[in-house]
């Protein structure tokens, strides 16, 4: 069924807009822009305000407030409402205090771990760390975040730095497939700079004379790039790569599934395909071709797990790893993720 794939690719390639601007990503409540778990008095007062002033989420409460007839019942109802709202606010404040204490604990833990695990630009150390594990994921995926320009490690430069660091660690650990996902597809759009960034980082670890080879695949536009921009692709050795990186964005998620559906609908309507040809197997193989295979381990470097629209078909059995309250791409999270994967047990259905 190559026809389907071609047609879907036509649609996705034509869509140079990789998701940005179409809709702003609204993160889950625990992952708002300013880390909400960070202790701050402002957060506490803000929560108290909203808790007191916003109407309740429960319909029964609202109905009760409206239906009471006599003035006496009304005012006693209001009093009760106020009483419970106050208790709720107190509950929130208690929760906030506990959470903030936990935040401090988590941050200290992360600081100590960062000291303990440091690759210090040496691939041997990374390989040594990995050798202790019983198994490694065949395919690793990570979700990266574009931080605002003003922040430390923010902007495009920061994103490319994080991405190329992950590439270097993966190569050193011996992983063959790496998927980098960022919601707006900044890496996709700036693939040349990213290639330079990777090359730069790799030459720091391996020395400029024998930089490992890598390939970058962009499934949305069906393109593959090898090594640095401008190097001769005719060299047969340049295609023997140590690592294949694929770059995904929000466009590869739900929208690709919609495109696939549209294409199959078109083909069915024009009788180029039978309805009974559409099977689970076909859908799976098409999506694997169009987006890539399912990763074994998904690393997230934010404060609490947020999948940000990572292709839904591809997280079926994927293990997730993230470090609570962490907000940086660091080696300690990377290696601890691999460690947790090495001990996990997978038994499909049994």
């Amino acid at each position: 069924m190559d026809k389907i794939q071609e047609r879907v690719l036509e649609a996705t390639i034509a869509d140079t807009d990789v998701g940005q601007g179409k809709q702003e990503h609204i993160p889950p409540p625990t992952n708002s822009k300013n880390n909400p778990a960070k202790p701050s008095l402002y957060n506490m007062t803000a929560t108290a305000e909203i808790a007191m002033l916003k109407p309740s989420g429960n319909d029964a409460v609202e109905a009760k407030m409206k239906t009471s007839s006599s003035t006496w019942a009304k005012s006693s109802n209001k009093l009760e409402y106020l009483f419970y709202k106050t208790l709720l606010t107190i509950l929130y404040m208690i929760y906030a205090c506990v959470r903030y204490a936990k935040y401090q604990y988590n941050r200290t833990k992360i600081q100590i771990l960062n000291l303990a695990y440091s690759p210090s630009n040496t691939p041997q150390l990374i390989r040594q760390d990995v050798l202790k594990f019983q198994k490694l994921p065949k395919r690793l995926a990570t979700i990266l975040e574009f931080k605002s320009e003003g922040d430390v490690g923010g902007g495009l430069g920061g994103l490319i730095n994080d991405g190329s660091e992950l590439v270097t660690w993966s190569i050193s650990a011996g992983i063959k497939h790496l998927t980098l996902y960022d919601y707006d597809g900044h890496l996709k759009k700036n693939v040349d700079e990213f290639r330079k960034g990777i090359h730069h980082k790799l030459s720091k670890y391996y020395g400029p004379s024998n930089v490992p080879k890598f390939a970058i695949r962009i499934p949305q536009w069906n393109k593959v790039y090898f090594n640095l921009p401008g190097t001769a692709p005719s060299d047969p050795d340049s295609k023997k790569v140590a690592l294949e990186v694929s770059l995904l964005s929000n466009r590869d998620g739900r929208e690709t599934i919609v495109d696939l559906t549209k294409t199959m609908a078109d083909l069915c309507v024009n009788n180029e395909m039978k309805l009974s040809d559409i099977t689970m197997k076909l859908v799976d193989s098409e999506l694997t071709q169009l987006v890539g295979p399912e990763p074994d381990l998904l690393l997230y470097f934010g404060p609490s797990l947020d999948l940000q629209g990572f292709p839904p078909w591809h997280i079926r059995l994927t293990e997730f790893y993230w470090e609570e309250d962490n907000d940086q791409v660091t080696y300690s999270v990377f290696i601890r993720g691999l460690k947790s994967y090495s001990t996990c047990k997978i038994n499909v259905g049994k």
Binding site: H25, I26, P27, P28, P29, T30, G253, R254, S304, L305, D306, L307, Q308, G309, F310, P311, P312, W313, I315, R316, L317, T318, E319, F320, Y321, S340, C344
Partner: peptide, 19 residues
């Protein structure tokens, strides 16, 4: 204690749900 979705709610939670 398992940290995966095991083929449940993939479409529903991958945008901005909390797990």
């Amino acid at each position: 204690g398992r940290t995966r979705l095991s083929d449940f709610m993939l479409w529903q939670v991958h945008e901005n749900g909390i797990i």
